[in-house]
Amino acid sequence: MIPTNVDRILAGRGILKREDVPSITAMRELISDPVPNWLLLQKMVTEEDLHETFLQISHLPRVHEWDAMEVIRLAAVLPPRFALENGCFALRETDGGLVIGLAQMPSAKVLREIHDRLTGYPIFFQSLHYNDACTVRDLLQCDFAAR
Protein backbone atom coordinates (compact mmCIF):
# COMPACT_ATOMS: atom_id res chain seq x y z
CA MET A 1 0.00 0.00 0.00
CA ILE A 2 1.37 3.39 -0.95
CA PRO A 3 1.18 5.95 1.92
CA THR A 4 -0.57 8.76 0.11
CA ASN A 5 -1.85 10.78 3.08
CA VAL A 6 0.25 13.87 3.61
CA ASP A 7 -0.06 13.57 7.39
CA ARG A 8 1.35 10.03 7.38
CA ILE A 9 4.23 11.03 5.13
CA LEU A 10 5.02 14.02 7.34
CA ALA A 11 4.96 11.71 10.36
CA GLY A 12 7.26 9.32 8.53
CA ARG A 13 9.73 12.17 8.02
CA GLY A 14 9.55 13.04 11.72
CA ILE A 15 7.88 16.43 11.10
CA LEU A 16 4.58 15.41 12.71
CA LYS A 17 4.30 13.32 15.85
CA ARG A 18 3.00 9.83 15.11
CA GLU A 19 0.53 10.07 17.98
CA ASP A 20 -1.09 13.09 16.27
CA VAL A 21 -1.82 11.21 13.03
CA PRO A 22 -5.05 9.46 14.19
CA SER A 23 -6.60 12.75 15.32
CA ILE A 24 -5.54 14.44 12.07
CA THR A 25 -7.12 11.54 10.16
CA ALA A 26 -10.34 11.98 12.16
CA MET A 27 -10.23 15.75 11.64
CA ARG A 28 -10.00 15.10 7.88
CA GLU A 29 -13.66 14.02 8.07
CA LEU A 30 -14.75 17.23 9.78
CA ILE A 31 -13.24 20.07 7.79
CA SER A 32 -13.64 20.98 4.17
CA ASP A 33 -10.27 22.73 3.84
CA PRO A 34 -7.40 20.57 2.64
CA VAL A 35 -5.42 19.06 5.54
CA PRO A 36 -2.16 20.79 4.51
CA ASN A 37 -3.83 24.20 4.96
CA TRP A 38 -5.01 23.20 8.40
CA LEU A 39 -1.56 21.89 9.39
CA LEU A 40 -0.06 25.20 8.27
CA LEU A 41 -2.59 27.23 10.26
CA GLN A 42 -1.87 25.13 13.34
CA LYS A 43 1.85 25.78 12.75
CA MET A 44 2.43 22.03 12.87
CA VAL A 45 4.38 22.20 9.61
CA THR A 46 6.09 24.86 7.52
CA GLU A 47 5.46 25.70 3.88
CA GLU A 48 8.87 24.24 3.08
CA ASP A 49 7.94 20.96 4.84
CA LEU A 50 4.81 20.70 2.73
CA HIS A 51 6.73 21.58 -0.42
CA GLU A 52 9.33 18.86 0.22
CA THR A 53 6.49 16.39 0.80
CA PHE A 54 4.91 17.43 -2.50
CA LEU A 55 8.25 16.82 -4.27
CA GLN A 56 8.54 13.43 -2.56
CA ILE A 57 5.01 12.32 -3.43
CA SER A 58 4.74 13.64 -6.97
CA HIS A 59 7.88 11.99 -8.45
CA LEU A 60 7.73 14.64 -11.18
CA PRO A 61 10.87 15.73 -13.04
CA ARG A 62 12.38 18.83 -11.46
CA VAL A 63 12.73 22.20 -13.14
CA HIS A 64 16.47 22.80 -13.44
CA GLU A 65 16.51 26.16 -15.13
CA TRP A 66 14.09 28.92 -15.89
CA ASP A 67 14.33 32.46 -17.21
CA ALA A 68 12.68 35.39 -15.46
CA MET A 69 11.86 37.25 -18.70
CA GLU A 70 10.28 34.14 -20.18
CA VAL A 71 8.19 33.58 -17.04
CA ILE A 72 6.89 37.16 -17.23
CA ARG A 73 6.25 36.82 -20.97
CA LEU A 74 4.24 33.65 -20.43
CA ALA A 75 2.31 34.98 -17.42
CA ALA A 76 -0.66 35.85 -19.62
CA VAL A 77 -1.02 32.22 -20.69
CA LEU A 78 -2.96 31.60 -17.47
CA PRO A 79 -5.70 33.87 -16.05
CA PRO A 80 -4.64 36.79 -13.82
CA ARG A 81 -3.50 35.61 -10.36
CA PHE A 82 -4.28 31.98 -11.29
CA ALA A 83 -0.59 31.05 -11.16
CA LEU A 84 -0.04 32.79 -7.83
CA GLU A 85 -3.14 31.34 -6.21
CA ASN A 86 -2.60 27.79 -7.42
CA GLY A 87 1.18 27.44 -7.60
CA CYS A 88 1.15 26.59 -11.34
CA PHE A 89 3.58 28.67 -13.42
CA ALA A 90 4.05 28.70 -17.19
CA LEU A 91 7.86 28.58 -17.38
CA ARG A 92 8.99 27.73 -20.87
CA GLU A 93 7.65 27.48 -24.39
CA THR A 94 9.33 25.07 -26.79
CA ASP A 95 8.09 23.69 -30.11
CA GLY A 96 4.59 24.98 -29.42
CA GLY A 97 4.46 23.19 -26.07
CA LEU A 98 4.54 24.53 -22.55
CA VAL A 99 6.44 23.55 -19.44
CA ILE A 100 4.34 24.22 -16.35
CA GLY A 101 6.27 24.41 -13.09
CA LEU A 102 4.32 23.27 -10.04
CA ALA A 103 4.82 24.51 -6.50
CA GLN A 104 2.03 22.28 -5.21
CA MET A 105 -0.25 19.55 -6.47
CA PRO A 106 -3.19 21.20 -8.26
CA SER A 107 -6.73 20.27 -7.32
CA ALA A 108 -8.82 18.40 -9.88
CA LYS A 109 -10.66 21.66 -10.62
CA VAL A 110 -7.43 23.62 -11.18
CA LEU A 111 -6.05 20.87 -13.41
CA ARG A 112 -9.24 20.87 -15.48
CA GLU A 113 -9.00 24.66 -15.86
CA ILE A 114 -5.40 24.37 -17.08
CA HIS A 115 -6.26 21.69 -19.63
CA ASP A 116 -9.39 23.53 -20.78
CA ARG A 117 -7.50 26.79 -21.24
CA LEU A 118 -4.57 25.12 -22.99
CA THR A 119 -6.53 22.64 -25.11
CA GLY A 120 -4.39 21.52 -28.03
CA TYR A 121 -1.11 22.61 -26.45
CA PRO A 122 1.32 19.88 -25.36
CA ILE A 123 2.01 20.40 -21.65
CA PHE A 124 4.86 19.07 -19.55
CA PHE A 125 4.33 19.39 -15.78
CA GLN A 126 7.48 19.63 -13.71
CA SER A 127 8.06 20.37 -10.04
CA LEU A 128 9.85 23.46 -8.79
CA HIS A 129 12.37 23.42 -5.97
CA TYR A 130 11.14 25.37 -2.96
CA ASN A 131 13.52 28.31 -3.45
CA ASP A 132 12.70 28.53 -7.16
CA ALA A 133 8.97 28.43 -6.39
CA CYS A 134 9.38 31.34 -3.92
CA THR A 135 11.43 33.33 -6.44
CA VAL A 136 8.97 32.77 -9.29
CA ARG A 137 6.08 33.70 -7.01
CA ASP A 138 7.82 36.94 -5.92
CA LEU A 139 8.66 37.76 -9.52
CA LEU A 140 5.06 37.40 -10.68
CA GLN A 141 3.75 39.25 -7.63
CA CYS A 142 6.03 42.23 -8.42
CA ASP A 143 5.09 42.11 -12.11
CA PHE A 144 1.39 41.96 -11.24
CA ALA A 145 1.72 44.90 -8.81
CA ALA A 146 3.58 46.96 -11.41
CA ARG A 147 0.78 46.65 -14.00
Partner: peptide, 11 residues
Amino acid sequence: ATPPHLQMTAW
Protein backbone atom coordinates in the same frame (compact mmCIF):
# COMPACT_ATOMS: atom_id res chain seq x y z
CA ALA B 1 -6.27 12.66 -23.81
CA THR B 2 -3.78 15.44 -24.60
CA PRO B 3 -1.12 15.98 -27.26
CA PRO B 4 2.23 14.72 -25.92
CA HIS B 5 4.95 17.28 -25.22
CA LEU B 6 8.26 16.45 -26.96
CA GLN B 7 10.41 16.83 -23.82
CA MET B 8 7.83 14.95 -21.79
CA THR B 9 7.98 12.09 -24.30
CA ALA B 10 11.79 12.01 -24.02
CA TRP B 11 11.53 11.96 -20.21
